[in-house]
Simulated assay, not measured.
Amino acid sequence: MLRAVGLPEALAGAAHTSAHDDLVRASHRLGVEPVGPHVGTPTVATGSGTPSAWFGPVLSRVPVGEEAGRLWDGVVLISGTGGSHGLEGRPHEPPRG
């Protein structure tokens, strides 16, 4: 997977060390802070200052190209709508990679 996105395969070694654990924990705290510790991950936040943040989206496959752009545009639109805070449901198709 790293090679597919143009990154050195040596980065995979980071998964087998605790050297970066404190940085990962700090990053995770910052990521969930806008939505609260009760939701977990994935979380997304948009905007500056006080971000609009929410849990999700949870996807059964990763979109690419224009499809990814349309998804992001929709997520930003929903998150900018006052009072919105979540979408939930069962998968529309089985997970695939």
Score class of each variant (00 low, 15 high):
residue 1 M to P: 08
residue 1 M to L: 09
residue 1 M to G: 09
residue 2 L to G: 06
residue 3 R to T: 13
residue 6 G to Y: 00
residue 7 L to Q: 12
residue 8 P to A: 09
residue 11 L to A: 03
residue 11 L to S: 06
residue 13 G to T: 06
residue 13 G to I: 00
residue 14 A to T: 10
residue 15 A to W: 02
residue 16 H to R: 12
residue 16 H to W: 14
residue 16 H to M: 01
residue 19 A to D: 15
residue 19 A to N: 10
residue 22 D to H: 05
residue 26 A to F: 08
residue 27 S to V: 07
residue 29 R to A: 15
residue 30 L to E: 15
residue 30 L to Y: 08
residue 32 V to P: 01
residue 33 E to K: 12
residue 33 E to W: 15
residue 34 P to W: 03
residue 34 P to K: 06
residue 34 P to A: 08
residue 35 V to E: 01
residue 35 V to A: 12
residue 36 G to Q: 11
residue 37 P to A: 13
residue 39 V to D: 07
residue 39 V to H: 10
residue 39 V to G: 04
residue 41 T to N: 01
residue 41 T to F: 14
residue 42 P to D: 03
residue 42 P to T: 10
residue 44 V to N: 00
residue 46 T to E: 05
residue 46 T to W: 14
residue 47 G to K: 02
residue 47 G to Y: 00
residue 49 G to W: 10
residue 50 T to I: 11
residue 50 T to N: 10
residue 51 P to K: 06
residue 52 S to E: 05
residue 53 A to M: 09
residue 53 A to I: 01
residue 53 A to E: 00
residue 55 F to M: 03
residue 56 G to I: 04
residue 58 V to Q: 10
residue 60 S to R: 02
residue 63 P to C: 12
residue 65 G to A: 02
residue 66 E to D: 15
residue 67 E to C: 03
residue 68 A to F: 03
residue 68 A to M: 04
residue 70 R to A: 14
residue 73 D to H: 03
residue 74 G to M: 07
residue 74 G to H: 07
residue 75 V to E: 01
residue 77 L to K: 15
residue 79 S to E: 09
residue 79 S to P: 00
residue 80 G to W: 05
residue 81 T to N: 07
residue 82 G to N: 11
residue 86 G to F: 08
residue 88 E to R: 14
residue 89 G to C: 04
residue 90 R to H: 08
residue 90 R to V: 08
residue 92 H to D: 10
residue 92 H to F: 10
residue 92 H to C: 02
residue 94 P to W: 01
residue 95 P to Y: 03
residue 97 G to Y: 14
